[in-house]
Design a protein around this nucleic acid. Sequence first.
DNA 1: GTACTAAATTGATCTATATCATTTTGGTGC
DNA 2: GCACCAAAATGATATAGATCAATTTAGTAC
Lengths: 252, 252
Amino acid sequence: MQVAMAKRKTTPLKDFAPDGHHCSLDLKTTKLGMVSFFQDLEQDVLDEIVKRFTATHYREGDEIYYQGDPAHYLRVVVDGAAKLLRYTDEGKDVVLDILNPGSYFGSLKLLGSDVYTESAEAQSGCCILSIGLKDFREILQEYPSVGIAILEMSAEKLRSSQEQIKQLTTESVETRIANILLILTDKFGEVKEDKTLIQLPFSRKDLADMAGTTTESASRVMSNFQKEGIIETGRQWVAIKNIEMLRSIVEH
Amino acid sequence: MQVAMAKRKTTPLKDFAPDGHHCSLDLKTTKLGMVSFFQDLEQDVLDEIVKRFTATHYREGDEIYYQGDPAHYLRVVVDGAAKLLRYTDEGKDVVLDILNPGSYFGSLKLLGSDVYTESAEAQSGCCILSIGLKDFREILQEYPSVGIAILEMSAEKLRSSQEQIKQLTTESVETRIANILLILTDKFGEVKEDKTLIQLPFSRKDLADMAGTTTESASRVMSNFQKEGIIETGRQWVAIKNIEMLRSIVEH
DNA sequence: GTACTAAATTGATCTATATCATTTTGGTGC
DNA sequence: GCACCAAAATGATATAGATCAATTTAGTAC
């Protein structure tokens, strides 16, 4: 698709899960097995469970669900990235998380009904598996280990959300952004020769909405980081050149 | 204990769960039944489960556990209030939550070992039940409904934590404080003649650490609220006189 | 290569809130 | 009633980061 021979600078991001892409059953199984709450299961059990999931492909920017919608599904990212956000009345978006393959999201309201409290959107082209909550409840009852694993994952989510609260109330914008870059490197980093490319289309606005600041402030911080040789960046992409310096900004 | 006959102004807070107080078995059972993850169980099953919990009484200010400690217990507040917080290196505390009776806290790390990522402290004199994680795991395996209930409670915690993130990044200090007052009224409000007393000792510093601001700013906001007749307040206590005005501050 | 456009940058203010420094006061113990 | 003291309030000032307003530029399409 990309006739890469120009020396002209184009986006270094790969065009993953592009249009017309289809999530194969194989991919489904492999990826679902990766998700930690299924990782203890036998292969044949896993195969059975996979059948109960439906795969859907989304293009970058597609809405997966919208806050306020009735919540009937639990979802798992198998390829690409999804973003969880809250829109506020004043039009200020808050990005709660960017999910990498293996992460679950959606609802866990197994009894009674519920409504999504956040929206989900395809950050890149992505494949998402979904399962109805009734089906998932059956799985839980059959395989208690799944329940225990998901309980821990959800505790982990709470923890990282609390960490975010701490950061917002105690750290400067620069520190918060440095921290976000580290987290994204962990989740989406792809090591190139002399740098680590964050394999994810994301703009200054995304970054600002994650850090709880404005695009302008995010831009200023990123400009400085680039001047200091810590990162290399273009439109919608960032590569980390000196992760140690980022760490030292966050540490202290 | 309190020879209440003076017209002198004293703290309107009750001296609940005072020194030497002892949590009775009855209290344990009643209160534990209230906790939503046990509320579906039969009485005799509940009785069995209660036996596996240990009750401990803490005095106001006591440390329940400290961040970094190995995490072996799941706990439930049965009386009084406990505070979850993170201490930062620079000495800025962040209050993550104030827990009322019926709330659980501590660890849910059922496999492997873990370390507390926050500290817990008795906000008032309080009774706390605790159960070892191994025991709790057995309960989970025996009663799947408990697992499902706790999964939902933990999803709910995540949600309120995300709401906090939204507030921190989009709302003013005044709005955040108004919101905290509403939440505390919900959890600890006790209706008096013309006002609702928040039955909980908590200082401007606690409030500031909850709102992600400074004691001075919190104090200024509270002074204004008092001038406008929205609240009545003294040392370590607040009563709400006009909850509608608080709501309207938060709404818009 | 040229034209085009949304993303990103940069600069000049403005402002909410932090910070620093006192003073005042609520509540207790005597 | 009076003394005491930490909590709370208040005032003056500083500042990080928001806001407003242009430019510049990266990347795409042709």
